[in-house]
Computed example of a mutant assay.
Amino acid sequence: MKATDLAAMAATSLRGVLGLVAATLCALALGAHAANSDDEGPGFARLGPPEAPVKLFYEEKGRGSPVLLVHGFGASTYTWRNIAPGLAENHRVIAVDLKGFGQSDKPFDERYSVFDQAELLKQLIIDNNLRDLTLVGHSYGGGVVLVLALDEDPRLTGRISKLVLLDTIAYPQDVPVFFRILDTPFLSHVGVRMVPPSVQTRIALRIAYLDNSKIDDEEVEMYAAPLRTAAGKHAIIHSARQIIPEGLEELSERYRSIAAPTLIAWCDHDRIVPLDVGLKLRRTLPDAELKIIEGCGHMPQEEQPEATLDLIQGFLND
């Protein structure tokens, strides 16, 4: 075979290899584009000031107008597992672990009030350009939602369309002994550090549930996991100390200015945040309705997920 023929064959082979590489890269690029165009799944959002950023874990699924799920004290995105899929049938559902909870960062600082949490979520809303947004907050998370609804930052103007408040903190109130212990410096450190996390969690869930037979081992373990670290213990103590934050009474006087349509849903046997709080909210908020969920204590999304989902879906479809 002549040298010219060998050269031609080599050139042809090289072109073939290069063509295959190009085709492969093109396919990978298209695949990457398809993956990036689908935002579903878990991730972390880097929020807060550049000098002290906080990573918040979130889970996202579905398409449509956005719904941001904000859990309560000691909980995480796990608490929405029974209602998020149903909401995602018609909405873009984003469930987030608040600072100090679940898989989010737990820095050794004291910025764990509803005001601190709302500031981080405000940045999440703006960074993701969320509009026509429904905020769903449970308990402590409901307090965060109320702060967001009252935020006068012009960057939030027109973004929040509806609120859903589930057994939410809203006014100064007596708190269960569990929280009073965590608010006592010596007792809080002894209790959180000496009592096994699974025991602490089961006690808390027994206070929050009406039917304790619905508390299973998986749930206890999921909620107890963050308490197995020093950072998780720090976060739970400092969140509990600010569960009823300073300035709440002054803040509550502004609730009348919240114009967004609001669903207030309350368990009929809540021993943590009494129904009187829900009744007062209904009288105060200009466009609010109150629905009672039967057969639950303080966590309707856990004890009565179907009834809770039906109420939220009905409200969103109005």
Rank of each mutant, 00 (worst) to 15 (best):
A34S: 08
K61R: 15
G86D: 12
I215N: 13
E60K: 15
L120Q: 05
P53F: 04
F179N: 06
P154T: 08
L150W: 03
G16F: 12
A259D: 02
Q313Y: 00
Q200T: 12
G278E: 07
S65K: 14
V220P: 09
L28A: 15
H238V: 01
P172G: 03
R271F: 04
K280I: 10
E40L: 01
D287C: 00
V96Q: 11
P274Q: 12
R254E: 14
I181P: 04
D97I: 05
P197M: 06
P185E: 02
D153A: 03
D318V: 04
S104C: 08
T168N: 14
Q123K: 13
E218Y: 13
A230F: 07
V199E: 13
V136P: 06
P197G: 08
D127K: 15
N128L: 06
A27H: 03
V93D: 00
P196D: 14
T79R: 00
G48T: 03
D216L: 13
G41N: 05
D109I: 11
Q173L: 11
A204Y: 11
L248F: 10
D183L: 00
T4Y: 01
F57S: 11
A27P: 02
R46M: 07
A149D: 10
V273C: 09
D116A: 12
A29N: 07
L14V: 13
K122N: 03
V195D: 04
V145K: 07
I244T: 09
I312D: 05
S13Q: 11
I293C: 08
A22S: 14
L311V: 02
A75V: 13
L210Y: 12
E302C: 04
N82T: 10
R46Q: 13
G278Y: 10
Q304M: 12
G16S: 12
V177C: 00
G72T: 04
D151C: 02
P185T: 00
T284L: 07
S252M: 10
N128P: 00
L130S: 08
L20E: 01
V220G: 09
H298F: 11
S104V: 05
T201F: 11
D39F: 00
A88H: 06
E289A: 06
M1A: 09
D174P: 07
G232H: 07
M194K: 06
H234I: 06
D167V: 07
I169E: 03
E59M: 06
D276A: 15
R193A: 03
N36K: 13
V70I: 15
I215H: 12
A35N: 06
F101Q: 14
I203P: 00
L68S: 01
D5R: 13
H269M: 05
P274V: 08
E60W: 02
L290I: 08
L148M: 12
Y171I: 08
L98Y: 02
V21N: 12
I203C: 00
E302P: 01
P50M: 02
C267K: 05
L47T: 03
I292H: 06
L148C: 06
K233P: 05
D217C: 04
P197N: 09
L156H: 06
A118S: 15
H138G: 02
V164E: 07
V199L: 15
G64R: 05
W80P: 13
E306Y: 05
I237P: 12
L311Q: 11
D174M: 11
N128W: 07
E303N: 13
A75H: 14
R63G: 04
F115I: 09
G64C: 04
P300W: 11
E219H: 09
